[in-house]
Design a protein around this nucleic acid. Structure first.
Length: 501
RNA sequence: GCGGGUGUAGCUCAGUGGCUAGAGCAUCACGUUGCCAACGUGAGGGUCGGCAGUUCGAAUCUGCUCACCCGCUCCA
């Protein structure tokens, strides 16, 4: 029952410290979430795996970490400042909210017929199309609100003087202006200090393209990678951390010679799908979906999404495909725009061939929070196992790939006497010393301790028992099979390190 | 933003004809046991989402509000 599954995952996430709602004791904040002790490890492991595979294991990619607040002109050049401001209109009849540029056109002054409240059996109403020249796309009504700007970027102000102060001082002047003039004047005042939280990390890579060429001796084909937070005022937020206003991205901008872009696009499109598989996401829950021409963003030549089948609650009751990552061919759009805006030369000169060109960009852009959620959902499993009395019982287990598991190993003394706790602590210390995140537990029955670790997704449990004192060996219990292997105490660190590599 | 649903302990949920708020699990302590969610005893933990109103009295009725879920819309 996938409907149930998401509920159980949310419950487990809260109970075990993966994901909490932001500011929960204040009643929560819309679409903001915090990662608890286990969640932060999981997310970090995913980001680290991405960084290692995309940057450290390649010669052709370098990293970058740029500021979230950038020069406001960056967003003018990239098209975000204009493109993010879609005029929205509310229908006063059926309460629909829609984009003005998507509404059906009708000549101003002509008559329009529609149903009351937009209901099929509603009373027939007649109206006149207003001077805006369009009607409601749902009910066809002409009784519409003014167009409202809805900026998808988070605006804030840079500088120690609050722009509110200047606005307060301009109140009388503003009162004399009409609505349009007032908006323009207010815009002028705010624009003096207005800056934006980035809606994507990508522009940081484009803006630093020349710096990196000049400082790193990289030449196309090469990439710049970055992870970090981005912010967008989403109209609708939903499904836990799947769509939030503040989110973390893992982006690569890969610069290539024009003409080679198609093959590099194909390369990354495939490579990125394989990455999720390699880290343990089941193949049946993954797919690549190519965008239709009409779906493509204004800058993109081609785009494909890596999608995961989330167990979200919905009408079908089965779950829903959701985007984890988009791989786009952004062409030379961004570098060209920034070159135009700044007058700087952002082309690349190839000395051997004496060719000069503005590189094309292939962009695999992944959501770190979405990936974390997908790994969590995919790891979730319930196993029917009879308990000691032979009655039906359920074992809840998170089957994380050891590389991303929050806790790599747990160390238990079978009993808390006969020097077993002391021996366990020694093994713990050796593991911690090697940077293996592990957990010590001596409370309650051993079976309970195993099951607790199953729920946290810990792949290995090391138990110190009577034989440890006699033969200097411990048991290693494997999470998925629940099989135990006996190994020497001095092999433990290497054994675990090898398994979680 | 609209429509529908939900909100009681860390989790899952009872509760009501309006009076001192409950269970199971979880957590902690002690004891016992010792390899797969054991047993006993005890303990801690609740602004009944928030604010206001009606009332002698509100978790319960009314209004507003916040958050989450579903649908529509949106997703450069």
């Amino acid at each position: 029952m996938p409907n149930d599954t998401m509920k159980k995952i949310v419950s487990l996430a809260k109970r075990r410290g993966f994901i909490f709602q932001s500011s929960e004791i204040y009643g929560g904040l819309k679409a903001c979430y915090d990662y608890g002790p286990l969640g932060v490890e999981l997310k970090r492991n995913i980001k680290d795996a991405w960084w290692r595979d995309m940057v450290h294991r390649r010669e052709d990619v370098v990293g970058l970490d740029c500021s979230i607040i950038m020069h406001p002109d960056v967003w003018k050049a990239s098209g975000h400042l204009a493109g993010f401001s879609d005029p929205l209109v509310d229908c006063k009849n059926c309460k629909e909210r829609f984009r003005a540029d998507h509404a059906p056109r009708k000549d101003a002054g002509t008559e329009t017929e529609y149903r009351e409240n937009g209901k099929q059996d509603g009373k027939k109403l007649k109206g006149v199309v207003g001077k805006q020249g369009y009607v409601c796309p749902v009910c066809g009504g002409g009784d519409l609100s003014d167009e409202r700007q809805f900026n998808l970027m988070f605006r804030t102000s840079l500088g120690s003087v609050d722009p509110m102060q200047e606005i307060a001082g301009a109140v009388e002047e503003l009162a004399k202006l009409d609505a349009k003039g007032r908006r323009e004047r207010l815009g002028e005042i705010i624009a003096k200090s207005a800056v934006y939280l980035r809606p994507e990390t990508a522009q940081g890579m484009f803006v630093n393209f020349k710096n990196i060429l000049d400082s790193s001796r990289m030449k196309p084909p090469f990439g710049i990678a970055q992870t970090g937070k981005s912010y967008r005022n989403e109209i609708t937020t939903a499904n836990l951390t799947f769509r939030t206003c503040e989110f973390e991205q893992m982006e690569l901008e890969f610069f290539v010679e024009p003409g080679t872009d198609d093959e590099w696009y194909a390369y990354w499109r495939n490579a990125r799908l394989e990455w999720y598989k390699k880290l343990g996401i089941r193949e049946k829950n993954l797919r690549l979906r190519d965008h239709e021409q009409s779906e493509l963003a204004h800058y993109a030549k081609a785009c494909a999404d890596v999608e995961y089948f989330f167990p979200f609650e919905n009408e079908s009751g089965e779950g829903e495909w959701g985007e984890l990552e988009g791989i786009a061919n952004r062409t030379d759009y961004d570098l060209k725009k920034h070159a135009e805006a700044t007058g700087k030369d952002l082309s690349y000169f190839e000395t051997e061939t004496k060719k000069r060109y503005i590189p094309y960009v292939i962009e695999p852009a992944a959501g770190a929070d979405r990936a974390t959620l997908a790994f969590l959902c995919d790891a979730y499993d319930e196993e029917a196992i009879p308990d000691q009395k032979g009655e039906d019982a359920v074992r809840t287990v998170l089957r994380f790939h050891p590389r991303i598991a929050p806790i790599k190993a747990a160390v238990f003394p079978l009993v808390k006497k006969d020097g077993l706790p002391e021996k366990s602590r020694e093994i713990m210390a050796a593991l911690l010393d090697q940077g293996v995140n592990c957990f010590y537990d001596q409370s309650g029955a051993i079976g309970r301790r195993y099951r607790r670790m199953d729920e946290a997704g810990t792949p290995f449990c090391i138990t110190v028992d009577a034989e440890t004192n006699e033969q200097n060996t411990v048991t290693v219990r494997e999470r998925d099979s629940m099989q135990q292997t006996r190994i020497g105490v001095n092999e433990v660190v290497e054994y675990i390190k090898e398994k979680v590599k």
